[in-house]
Design a protein around this nucleic acid. Structure first.
Lengths: 148, 148
DNA sequence: GTAAGCGTTGACGTCGGGGTCAAGGCCAGC
DNA sequence: GCTGGCCTTGACCCCGACGTCAACGCTTAC
């Protein structure tokens, strides 16, 4: 199989496959022309890579899985190095989710506070006749009228 | 105040301030030399920017807050455009946390499965005398011994 | 024979937020 | 007047995972 066919079969591009090869992740045999030649094994390697990429693994992190498959294992995660990557990834995900959750809470609190303050300002403006500083409110709602 | 002093006061670098200026986010007045000149207002603008950056806002997303402050509001989030950014960000964070949580569950499940399979293979090897394909196990634990 | 459609390598662009020179201007103190 | 420290602009460098040419070779169908 040549590069275009392999790319089609796993739903990626030839550029991507050449990039993987340049990283030493998916070396290809060459036929007489210098054309890259791939086998069915390579389909499985690539599927492994894409699956992990979809999980957010970066390319280097897929390497143990690929090497595990290439060394004859039925699954890419049958090797300790792969399992170690899983573990590290789970830890990173937990940490990241924790941070994002904390940030979410803070931004949510700021949002609530700002909404309340704006409601208060609007009421003040109603009562006193718009003493608050004016920003370009309304997000392009009535810019022409404001300009004219 | 000149650029170095401002950078020191908010804990950033002159390069960063020039970068912000190049993005139109923090324009500076110039004195006779061509040196950038800043006032106390700019300290507050910068603090607003850094706070939002710490929350993971990208530079463009801080722009409404900065313009809000510059238009005279006491807080950067007193304007509808800023509140809209808050809302969008909360939505993005919720979506991202959801995705990451799903990925975490999947990776966690794969990890558990792989660990169980490896335990099973180890038992098989114990029983039958290592018939499984060998990867370079051990993560540098006993490489010298394996090599010697 | 010639055009389409594959393949090859190499090089540069992308995105964000700056880091890190390089070459030179301005100003203060001694 | 000289040194040191600040300032100026401009330009290239970094990360990851490719996209997008450019310029060329091979193969196949007509």
């Amino acid at each position: 199989m040549r590069i275009g066919e392999l790319a089609d079969r796993v739903g990626t591009t030839t550029r991507t496959l050449r990039y993987y090869e340049s990283r030493g992740l998916l070396p290809a045999r060459r036929d007489g022309n210098g054309y890259r030649t791939y086998g069915e094994d390579d389909v499985r390697l690539l599927q492994q890579i894409r699956t992990l990429q979809d999980f957010g693994f970066d390319l280097e992190e897929t390497r143990p899985f690929v090497e595990c498959l290439r060394s004859g294992h039925p699954a890419g995660d049958s090797c300790p190095a792969s399992v170690a990557v899983y573990r590290r990834k789970v830890g990173e995900l937990d940490a990241l989710i924790g941070e994002l959750t904390a940030v979410r809470a803070q931004v949510g609190a700021q949002l609530a506070r700002a909404e309340e303050a704006m409601a208060g300002l609007a009421a003040d403006a109603d009562a006193a006749g718009a003493p608050a500083p004016r920003c370009e409110l309304g997000e392009a709602s009535d810019v022409s009228e404001a300009r004219g």
